[in-house]
Amino acid sequence: MTDMDSQPLSRTLAIDIGDAFVGLAMTDRLGVTIEPLFTLRRTRLKDDVKNIARLVRKHEITEIVAGLPLNMDGTEGKRALVSREFAEAVAQATGIAVVCFDERLTTREAHERLNQAGYGTQNRKEVLDQVAAVVLLESYLAEKAYRAARETPPVV
């Protein structure tokens, strides 16, 4: 058995919460690659959360991160409160704690990536939220790896 065989397989889901859409992205089972899933068109909170819970079960998600839209000065405004409420509803429906993670500038980064890829304006909003979820998940995993590296004692 290799080290890879003994590592638990898990997936992390990223949720980019907007007023009209929720962008979703997830890692592979090793937590190495990230793929956009789809964009959920918002209806009612109860239905949105039910759809996400179904997705969590289907893909055996073990960790969830939700975008937290902070103001540029780092404070929380009305949008952050809405996102926290959505994240809490997802946590209750799935039984998995949802980490709220700073999503400032993820939409700008998503626009830049779509521009670089030559993606046009038709249906851009739906794809944009998926790409923003990918950016959110990349940032979250990078921060998590950085913290883990800082907490690991050096090998002597």
Rank of each mutant, 00 (worst) to 15 (best):
R54P: 00
F86C: 09
S139R: 15
R79L: 10
R57L: 07
V49S: 04
R29E: 13
E60T: 14
F38Q: 10
R79N: 07
G31L: 09
F86P: 07
T27W: 02
A132P: 08
R44I: 10
F21A: 08
S10E: 14
E126D: 12
F38P: 01
G118A: 09
L9I: 13
E60S: 13
A142Y: 06
P153S: 10
A14F: 00
I52K: 00
A91H: 05
K144G: 00
F86Q: 08
A93S: 12
A97C: 00
D102P: 01
E60P: 01
R54T: 14
T75D: 06
E63V: 03
A93C: 10
C100P: 01
A20M: 08
A20L: 09
L45D: 12
T121K: 14
T152Q: 12
V98E: 05
N71D: 12
L137K: 02
G120Q: 11
R104G: 03
Q116R: 08
L30W: 11
L9V: 11
R44W: 04
P69G: 09
F21M: 09
I15T: 01
T107N: 06
G23Y: 04
V82E: 14
P69V: 12
V32W: 09
S83E: 01
E35F: 06
G31C: 08
E151T: 10
Y119V: 15
K58C: 00
M26N: 05
V98Y: 04
G23Q: 05
D3S: 07
A142D: 11
H111T: 02
L13G: 02
E88R: 13
A148V: 07
N123R: 09
S139I: 01
E103P: 03
L24H: 05
E109R: 05
D47M: 06
E103M: 05
T62V: 04
P154T: 11
C100T: 14
L141M: 14
V49Q: 04
L68D: 06
I17F: 09
N51A: 12
R84F: 15
A14Y: 04
A66G: 15
R124K: 15
A91D: 02
T62Q: 13
E126K: 14
D3C: 02
E109A: 12
K58H: 12
G18M: 04
A145F: 01
Q116I: 01
D129H: 15
A110H: 06
T152H: 11
R84Y: 12
V155K: 06
P153V: 09
L137T: 00
I52H: 03
S83L: 10
T12C: 13
P69H: 03
Q92H: 11
E88W: 09
D47Q: 13
E63K: 11
F101K: 02
L40V: 04
Y119D: 00
D102V: 04
N123Q: 13
T27A: 03
L55T: 12
A20V: 13
Q122L: 13
M26L: 09
Q130N: 01
S139G: 15
E126A: 12
V65G: 02
G118C: 09
Q122P: 04
P36H: 08
Y119G: 00
R11E: 03
L55V: 10
A110I: 10
